[in-house]
Amino acid sequence: MKTMKWLIKREFWEHKGMVLWAPAVVAGLIALLTLSGLLLGRDMAFEGGASKISVELGGAARDTTIAMLADVYMAFSVPILLILGFLVFFYCLGALHDDRRDRSLLFWKSLPVSDRMTVLSKVVLALVAIPLVSVLIGIALSLVIAVLLGISMAMHGVNLLGPVLSSPAFYLSPLRLIGLIPVYMLWALPTVGWLLLVSSWARSKVFLWAVGAPLVTAVLVAWANKIFGLGMPQGWFMENVVSRLLLGVAPGNWFLHSRINPQALVQEGAEHVRNADLFGASWSTLGNPVLWVGVAAGVAMIAGAVWLRRWREEG
């Protein structure tokens, strides 16, 4: 366990710019742009003065706005979550290939560390550390923007910050976002396994092998299906194989494979998807057999990456 801890720390130190600073810088820029927009008065589309705003947000409308802001303000973290998919993808793509390319593999093999533990440390960084850091940065960004918006609206005569901060949903929303990390880990496992397998095998052009091989295979399968009349449903291979190999690291991809439309979660009379409903729908995808087939395939590909790392030392 202590060895694994130091391996994960080593991975984090080597990729600190990707894991920590990239999402942090993007979050800082978004917060700065938001603040600039608020200072310039371009953040609100309200017409008229403060008295008109107060009237528009009075009574039931005000209560609805407070409930909505307290429930969905985590949506401000979406840009960071989008970046998360790219970070995990490109980290896994070079995780094992870079060790062979710069010959550092020979150094690490001289240490009393097994190939299995080395590969697993990279899996942990990809599936746990990077998502957790990105989610925490996204939560911090959402909190900052929510407070800035509250202060700005208060300056226009509408005090929503206090009621929003006193709402239980305000504190449950970030916890639910963190609670989606296990769901993300399971759905991302096939992509992580595939990218590590290619990273441990390809001598060069890792990206072309990782992306091109599934796409070319999909074209050949579609051609064979059409020529020989195999009767395979149109797009089945793209959806259940290519998509799982390449898009699994994109947060929310489970809705694509589970046939769950987030808009269908909007309750009658509501104006947005409730955070709790989105959270429950995400966890319900764990009952989908497609998920567990992908998990088994991901574990098998990670095992293949361990075997390849053990026997392939050349760059």
Score class of each variant (00 low, 15 high):
Ser36Leu: 13
Ser36Gln: 11
Ser36Asn: 12
Ser36Cys: 09
Ser36Arg: 13
Gly37Trp: 05
Leu38Tyr: 02
Arg42Lys: 15
Asp43Asn: 13
Asp43Val: 11
Met44Ala: 14
Met44Thr: 15
Met44Glu: 15
Ala45Pro: 00
Ala45Gln: 03
Phe46Asp: 08
Glu47Tyr: 05
Gly48Pro: 03
Gly48Ser: 07
Gly49Tyr: 03
Gly49Val: 04
Gly49Pro: 02
Gly49Gln: 04
Ala50Leu: 04
Ala50Pro: 01
Ala50Cys: 03
Ala50Gly: 02
Ser51Met: 10
Ser51Phe: 13
Lys52Pro: 10
Lys52Met: 15
Ser54Pro: 06
Val55Gly: 05
Glu56Pro: 02
Glu56Thr: 04
Glu56Cys: 03
Leu57Cys: 10
Leu57Met: 14
Leu57Glu: 10
Gly59Arg: 09
Gly59Phe: 10
Gly59Cys: 11
Ala60Ile: 00
Ala60Phe: 00
Ala60Ser: 00
Ala61Asp: 11
Arg62Asn: 12
Asp63Leu: 15
Asp63Tyr: 10
Asp63Phe: 11
Thr65Ile: 14
Thr65Arg: 14
Ile66Thr: 05
Ala67Glu: 08
Ala67His: 06
Ala67Gly: 06
Ala67Thr: 05
Met68Val: 05
Met68Ile: 02
Met68Lys: 04
Met68Asp: 02
Leu69Pro: 04
Leu69Ala: 14
Ala70Glu: 11
Val72Cys: 07
Tyr73Ala: 03
Tyr73Asn: 01
Met74His: 12
Met74Arg: 14
Met74Asp: 13
Ala75Phe: 12
Ala75Tyr: 13
Phe76Asp: 08
Ser77Phe: 01
Val78Met: 13
Val78Phe: 06
Pro79Tyr: 05
Pro79Val: 10
Pro79Ala: 07
Ile80Glu: 02
Ile80His: 03
Ile80Asn: 01
Ile80Lys: 01
Leu81Cys: 04
Leu82Val: 14
Leu82Arg: 10
Ile83Tyr: 07
Ile83Ala: 09
Leu84Trp: 04
Leu84Gly: 08
Gly85Met: 02
Phe86Arg: 06
Leu87Met: 11
Val88Gln: 11
Phe89Trp: 10
Phe89Lys: 06
Phe89Ser: 04
Phe89Asn: 02
Phe90Arg: 11
Phe90Lys: 06
Tyr91Ser: 06
Cys92Asp: 03
Cys92Leu: 07
Cys92Lys: 06
Cys92Val: 07
Cys92Tyr: 03
Leu93Glu: 01
Leu93Tyr: 00
Leu93Ser: 00
Gly94Pro: 08
Gly94Lys: 12
Gly94Tyr: 13
Gly94Cys: 08
Ala95His: 07
Ala95Ile: 08
Ala95Ser: 13
Leu96Phe: 01
Leu96Gln: 00
Leu96Met: 01
His97Arg: 14
Asp98Met: 09
Asp98Ala: 09
Asp98Asn: 12
Asp98Gly: 06
Asp99Gly: 06
Arg100Lys: 06
Arg101Ala: 12
Arg101Val: 10
Arg101Ser: 11
Arg101His: 12
Arg103Ala: 08
Arg103Trp: 09
Ser104Gln: 08
Ser104Gly: 04
Ser104Phe: 04
Leu105Asp: 00
Leu106Asp: 01
Leu106Ser: 01
Phe107Trp: 11
Phe107Thr: 13
Phe107His: 10
Trp108Asp: 12
Lys109Ile: 08
